[in-house]
């Protein structure tokens, strides 16, 4: 091994190139609250979901399930439906999402009130 002044320059040392792994996409709060997440769900529900009502309960339910499944597939394609549901349910316990949820409901409530007033 060379000794002397050249060694300290570090010319002979190999430069290590460490490649970082591509970060794995996660189903987390940020993704759930992004515009493709829950906002899209409530946005499209009105136009996409049409129920037939009494006597068609099971087909209505499968329509509802399909609606959610396609939404989840768009949001986070690699997860299976039932796994995804349980992951989202777990996220729902976080403080941030709980606050958001309360907001959504009160918004809906305000809307309902407005409608009530309008009807009267």
């Amino acid at each position: 091994a060379p000794t002397g002044p050249t060694a300290s320059l570090g010319l002979d040392e190999e430069v290590k190139v460490s490649r970082k792994r591509q970060p794995v996409a996660k189903l987390d709060e940020a993704r759930l609250l992004s515009s493709d997440g829950i906002p899209k769900l409530s946005r499209t529900a009105r136009s996409k979901l049409k129920f037939k009502g009494k006597g068609h309960e099971f087909s209505d339910a499968s329509r509802l399930l399909g609606f959610y499944q396609l939404w989840l597939d768009d949001l986070f394609p690699r997860v299976k439906f039932s796994d995804g549901l349980s992951m989202i349910e777990k996220l729902g316990h976080s403080k941030r999402i709980q606050i958001k949820r309360r907001e959504w409901i009160s918004k809906g409530r305000a809307g309902a009130h407005l409608e009530d007033n309008y009807n009267q």
Partner: peptide, 24 residues
């Protein structure tokens, strides 16, 4: 149960998001 659910969704559209979670 589904009949009730459908009715509820039509009454309260907010339920669409709430359906994903355990209720507070």
């Amino acid at each position: 149960l589904i009949r009730r659910l459908i009715k509820k969704i039509e009454q309260h559209p907010a339920l669409i998001t709430e359906l994903l979670f355990s209720k507070i």
